[in-house]
Design a binder for these strands. Structure first.
Lengths: 133, 133
DNA sequence: ATTGAAGTTTACGTTAACGTAAGTTATATT
DNA sequence: AATATAACTTACGTTAACGTAAACTTCAAT
């Protein structure tokens, strides 16, 4: 544990608030492929970055499949033109999805504000009934 | 089908791009409770609004449980102080989650931009090799 | 030498969110 | 009257994303 440029599975698990089982599951799904030191998995910074993307994807409601697709984009091997164009299309679609999410969040925030105002108004009413001053 | 102020299940299904099975499932999960006209379900505007919230919630990665909790907030019966305070807390937590999502989206958009730039650069390189002018 | 902590594999279990029949009923149209 | 259309209920099936348990191995420290 020489504070190397690598990480153990439990280090990453702790850092990202997931279980080691979860990380191994991502490997089963081919989203990660750490090196091995004997039997043990050794994670590089690149692996950590991928995991970060997956965890963030989950917060946005992405499936592992979708996160996998995104990861794919950042990897080399997309040399041929056809693949590059597909990737550009996928990026466009992703942006549209994110835009929709932005609109949804905005709407939800508005609704939360209204709901909160309603609650606080009611609480005010209650406190008046129970007023002491 | 007198273009009334109510909707049939298939009308809503079509409008929101889900199946009737899905809508019935939301009823099973107690997120909706339409009136009945004999056997048939009759949905009001309020029901439609609830469904809209659920569908939007899904786009944001919410579980049906979470959407149900949100729906609960907009309903009466939250008279007692304790419940009101809980609701206000829940609203706060929801806002925090949404804030995190906003940050995540921002990050993802940045990454998408970089990835797109990379792709387009590669495509440029290819087109130079194949240049005709 | 032994114990304990962290890692591993294998494999069955679980929950959420519907999908997919299969069989029934009601209404409306030809 | 017959048939099509939309609705309904019941119930088993399916997929994703892990949880959980059992039975090793590997080191490091007591």
């Amino acid at each position: 544990m020489v504070t190397d440029t690598t990480f153990s599975i439990s280090q990453l698990a702790k850092e990202f608030g997931v279980t080691t089982r979860t990380i191994r599951h991502y490997e089963d799904m081919h989203l990660l492929s750490p090196q091995r030191q004997g039997q043990k998995r050794i994670y590089t910074f690149a692996d950590r970055t991928k995991l970060k993307l997956i965890v963030r994807g989950k917060r946005l409601g992405l499936s592992l499949q979708e996160s996998g697709d995104l990861l794919h984009m950042y990897e080399p091997g997309k040399n041929n033109i056809d693949q590059l164009e597909r990737t550009v299309e996928y990026i466009g679609a992703s942006r549209q999805k994110l835009s929709q999410q932005l609109r949804d969040i905005s709407t939800m925030l508005d609704e939360l504000n209204k709901a909160e105002a309603g609650c606080k108004a009611e609480l005010e009413a209650h406190s008046k009934l129970t007023k002491k001053t």
